[in-house]
């Protein structure tokens, strides 16, 4: 195969993977935009989402779409609880304290999942037969199409919520200026909860999609994609919603390109190399706004 065909193929694979990163990155970026917290546990919510989906399909015998909705709802509840229990009491503490708490929350979710669901991986039930869709010289699998389609659909819904609903307006107001929003009569606590709920639901959807894509889920599956999605959010400009999507897609493509070019173990280093480069040369990300520190 000619190199450009391989590259095109990897571009398609990269877009599918990237749309998953984008879904997770959205949660990071929304939470960061509102309370300036890197929610380290976000990747583990994604993992929980995959498990919720797994049990919804295997135990409740639900079809894929209802299972996904159930899982998203359950993850949203976990996200909100997490915020209420672990983060909210620390809202006025130092950022380091909150960050340590977030790391703690992440570890806790991981090890609880390991205890409850077992440490070994589970095969994810397949909701559809594997098919290839030929697109000229390259192909796309029906799973990739599903991932891409669901991701785009969810992002459109999110866009509508953020841009056109009262909730979205309030979210944007809180992320701009919490005090002013409070004075305008916005219930800031509720908006923060809503943000966690939406972000967690998106991550849960991503978890199920990835479970289907790779055919397996395990309690540690959230760690790496979580970190990478965070990098994607930073790459796009943290706090900027379209930035998370752009960053996610770019990350997915970049990773797949590196796999094509060289070793697949280097793949995990790509994300962090990107991160360090971005932070050094464009710390506000591709679509980020410049912030001024007040003296």
């Amino acid at each position: 195969m000619a190199w450009h065909i391989i590259a095109l193929q990897q571009l398609i694979n990269g877009l599918a993977l990237g749309s998953v990163y984008a879904l997770i990155a959205l949660g990071y970026t929304m939470v960061y935009g509102i309370i300036r917290l890197i929610n380290f546990a976000h990747g583990d919510i994604y993992m929980l989402g995959a498990y919720f989906g797994f049990y919804a399909i295997t135990m409740l015998k639900l079809p894929l779409v209802p299972a996904m909705i159930v899982s998203m709802a359950a993850a949203a509840v976990v996200g909100v609880l997490l915020e209420r229990i672990a983060y909210k009491p620390l809202r006025n503490s130092s950022r380091i304290a909150v960050l340590i708490t977030a790391i703690g929350a992440s570890l806790l979710l991981q090890s609880t999942a390991q205890l409850v669901f077992g440490a070994s991986f589970k095969p994810f039930p397949q909701a559809m037969a594997f098919r290839r869709i030929q697109l000229g010289p390259v192909f796309m699998t029906n799973r990739q199409l599903l991932i891409f389609g669901v991701a785009v659909l969810l992002m459109v819904i999110l866009h509508v919520i953020v841009q056109y609903t009262k909730l979205g307006k309030a979210m944007r107001a809180v992320s701009m200026d919490k005090e002013a929003a409070l004075l305008m009569g916005i219930n800031v606590d509720r908006i923060i909860s809503a943000t966690f709920a939406i972000g967690s639901a998106l991550a849960a959807a991503a978890g199920i999609l990835v479970g289907m894509y790779y055919n397996r889920i395990d309690p540690y599956m959230g760690m790496m994609p979580g970190l990478k999605a965070f990098v994607a959010a930073v790459l796009g400009g943290i706090g900027v919603v379209p930035g998370a999507v752009l960053g996610g897609l770019l990350m997915g493509v970049a990773e797949n390109m590196v796999v094509t070019l060289g070793s697949s173990t280097l793949r995990d280093a790509v994300a962090f190399a990107i991160l360090i480069v971005v932070l050094l040369f464009r710390p506000n990300g591709l679509l980020g706004k410049k912030g001024i520190e007040k003296v």
């Binding site: 890197i38 380091i96 970190l227 965070f230 995990d268 280093a269 962090f272 360090i276 932070l279 710390p283």
Partner: peptide
């Protein structure tokens, strides 16, 4: 020098993984 708080945390985590 350029990174603060949480950004630095992620960058150092990334460094370790690299």
């Amino acid at each position: 020098l350029r990174l603060r708080g949480d950004y630095l945390a992620i960058a150092t985590l990334g460094f370790g993984e690299i």
